[in-house]
Simulated assay, not measured.
Amino acid sequence: MSTSTLPAGTFVEPGRGSGLLDVVRQRFLLKLLVRKDLRVRYRGSVLGMLWSYVKPAVQFVVYYFAVGVFLQMNRAVDNFAVYLFAGIVVVNFFGEAFGNATRAIVGNNALVKKIYLPRELFSVSALWVAFIHFIPQLVVLVIGALLTGWSPSLVQLGAGLLGFVILAIFSLGLGLVFGAVNVMFRDAENIVDLLLMVATWASPVLYQWTAVRAVVGDSWVWTVYQLNPLTPIVELFHYCFWAPTNGAQYVGVPNLGTWVGLAALISVLTLVLGEWVFRRLDGRFAQEL
């Protein structure tokens, strides 16, 4: 009877894979996880994917009347509805991607304990589900912008695309960090809920950046405010969707290109940190769950 030997490197120690690169190689598994997440979320639901329209619509109406009508921001900002919704879609995507990625490992504990697969798949699938829900909101935003005379240039469209790429990287990076830590300490979920609660107010979604600059001036508070990646990302969306509408009096943030570059750098560093933390704790997930 003959025996055969396998070449060195055929077997890979669990938890010692290639991280996010394994997600790219196993796109079919990612597709299955995304389908599973969507089915579980809308199981027994009457409206199903229509909730992707209902939730942001209710959120928009509440903010529009509370801030736009009662606080009269619709008089201070031309086409305030487009301005507001351009910021809301950013915060909604960030909140869903970050929040779901934080709960991804714990929520899939049965799979984590039974079989080995790149655990980053769960975090990336949360990002994809958030993207699927982002599309209907983007469609509504585009329709609303078109009704107000939206006529963007290629540069403005590119700014919107750049903003979304930075947003996705930043959301995934934070999701990897808190998703891994959440396995060890469930307090991470509460911390994330607090961060998401202030995210809408920590960036120029309900107000203009000029209101912040008028109060804090060119102080360290302004620097910290701009170093929040969501702030330049929201401004990129305003530049893409609100600035090209009729009557919009767009005033660009001073040195916006610099702040966008710093936001991109912070987002990439966050993703690198997230992958490092995730892989350091990956080997303990099954036993902790």
Rank of each mutant, 00 (worst) to 15 (best):
V155R: 02
V205C: 02
G149Y: 01
G173W: 05
V106W: 09
K36Q: 14
F241P: 00
V40I: 13
G257V: 04
K114P: 07
V253D: 02
C240M: 01
L262R: 08
N255R: 07
P118E: 15
L6H: 12
S151T: 07
G107K: 02
S267L: 02
A97K: 02
V224D: 06
G160Q: 02
G179F: 02
G173F: 09
V124M: 03
L273K: 03
L146A: 13
V234T: 06
P136E: 10
L30M: 01
A264P: 13
A76I: 03
A286K: 06
T231Y: 10
I135H: 12
F131D: 05
W242Q: 07
A286V: 02
V90T: 01
F170T: 00
V224R: 01
A104Y: 10
L154Q: 03
F178D: 00
R186A: 14
W222S: 04
A145C: 12
A248I: 05
M73D: 09
V177S: 14
W222N: 02
P229C: 10
S4W: 08
S2I: 05
L167Y: 05
L289F: 05
G9Y: 10
L236G: 07
M1A: 02
Y42L: 00
R103S: 11
E189P: 14
L256M: 15
V253N: 09
V215T: 10
L162D: 08
I105H: 07
F98G: 13
A199Y: 03
F28T: 05
A159P: 00
P118W: 15
V24A: 14
A286C: 07
L273R: 02
L262P: 15
I88D: 00
G87L: 07
L236R: 03
I169Y: 11
L167G: 13
F170M: 00
L206Q: 00
L117E: 10
H133M: 11
T245V: 10
V272F: 11
V192A: 13
A159W: 01
T10H: 14
F285V: 03
Q59R: 06
G68W: 06
D22Y: 08
D37M: 01
Y250F: 15
Y116F: 15
V139W: 01
F85W: 00
F98Y: 15
P56M: 08
L172G: 01
A214D: 15
E288F: 08
L195I: 04
L194A: 10
V82L: 11
G149L: 09
T223P: 15
L162W: 03
L50C: 05
G17C: 14
I166M: 06
D78C: 12
L269R: 01
L172E: 06
V212D: 10
T200S: 09
L265P: 13
W222Y: 06
F285I: 04
V268Q: 12
L196E: 06
N255C: 07
F131A: 12
I266W: 03
G179H: 00
D78P: 15
V177G: 13
G17A: 14
T270I: 00
N190H: 08
N108H: 13
D218R: 02
L174Y: 03
L265C: 14
A97Q: 05
S123C: 15
N109F: 12
R25A: 15
L32G: 09
